[in-house]
Write a protein that binds this DNA or RNA. Sequence first.
DNA 1: CGCAACATTGACAACTCTCAACCAATGTGG
DNA 2: CCACATTGGTTGAGAGTTGTCAATGTTGCG
Lengths: 254, 254
Amino acid sequence: MGIRVLLGRESRNVPLLRRVETVAALSAEEREALLRVPMSVRDLPPRTDILCEGERPETCCVVLSGYAIRYKIGAEGDRHIIAFHVPGDIPDLQSLHLAVMDHTLASLTGMTAGLIAHRDLHDLNLRYPRLAGALWRLTLVDAAVFREWIVNLGHRDALSRTAHFLCEMHTRLASVGLGNGDAIELPISQTDLADALGVSAVHMNRTLQELRARKLIESNGRMIMARDWSALAALGEFDPAYLHITPHERADPA
Amino acid sequence: MGIRVLLGRESRNVPLLRRVETVAALSAEEREALLRVPMSVRDLPPRTDILCEGERPETCCVVLSGYAIRYKIGAEGDRHIIAFHVPGDIPDLQSLHLAVMDHTLASLTGMTAGLIAHRDLHDLNLRYPRLAGALWRLTLVDAAVFREWIVNLGHRDALSRTAHFLCEMHTRLASVGLGNGDAIELPISQTDLADALGVSAVHMNRTLQELRARKLIESNGRMIMARDWSALAALGEFDPAYLHITPHERADPA
DNA sequence: CGCAACATTGACAACTCTCAACCAATGTGG
DNA sequence: CCACATTGGTTGAGAGTTGTCAATGTTGCG
């Protein structure tokens, strides 16, 4: 609660609270503690690196609005997008216990980020063990998403891979109260999508055309709007279980 | 310390200790506490499911000898191997905070497993916060490996993908004191490898032949012996940084 | 207007898959 | 001891998916 930091109390970190509550039930006290964590807010332009591979951050970064991505750069300078993040996510929560970044965190769209000091999070964890469990759980859900991406990349073709991706983003956005009802709008360029789904930009384009032709999505410019969720889910073999968004399920002992 | 459980004190969970110490420095007291955790030991035949998707385990499973795998079953019954685990690993550590399994854990080879009750681990975590941090860290390294696999599957062809996999296994085995010096022996069938690397069994076979032709590996029967690590690492763009095996690096505050 | 970034297209090459055999090692029952 | 089944490795041929290259639209913006 320093001078130049903005207090969460001002409802800035509501997205974070909402996210945490998708994976764990909190007591009033814990909720209050989470909202009270000092957070400094920063606005970022699109496509800006926030934290680079090799760095040793001393803060964690909450996505408050917009999209973030994590990526690695290959030997020949090619970019591999590892994850997309929506408001409420803490894309670098792992830095709390993994000192050096093994990938880069960046904004994808214009984005506002909330920075929380590691020290404050460690304090929170010591004071509220169940909150610590909830944060741990967030990192485990992160890993669960990675597992599903491994299956997606290793065993599905470009078409169903893309369908699966769209379903995941829709579900995640909806779980934190975003998502315009039935159709999401993803402001993602085809090149970005291609780097995430492990296909060439040309093939990404053709894949999207195929999805359009099948009336599963609409897309104009860099917006993708889903049209037929159940068909997309079937095509992508999408089962949201791996997202573990069940507020009342907890492994912790009472 | 019940009657029918075997005490770790009997040096059964030394592999676990060794693994934990590859990611965090422990005090004598913490080391002692870890060794003292009650653990029941079980021998498993090859290819046996230990924990299935959908289950809600109340124990965690330490690999004491042999190899374990984690996999998901696709819609058409196809198996996707997500991870390989070597002695010292706790493949289902995430179950501590993620109640329901989103994949299956199984033995790959003959294997001996040590089961630790969630309750005992939670106790340990409350009593020794730094040990809790170390376990959290283990799950984060798990996730870091997933991230690298995403890059491997999404952006490398079968040849360099396989090279990368071999380098990872070698490094992980060596980090816990296994691995016969320069060459590892992987008792993995080509079919299993294929399911892990996202290629068909036929193509896996041809890929291995190519690696053999290039004098990078030797393989007879179901043993794969690496021949030229530096060439494999170059081919697979392997950089062990993502394994975070640096005993003295810690993000935790002093 | 003209640049810049992104989307789209066509043609061709490369990678990987599937199918369908066949071979080799191992283990079991007669 | 051999016949046989089973598992896993190997091979060839043809097809399908995806990548690359290069060019052409299209859109937004200074």
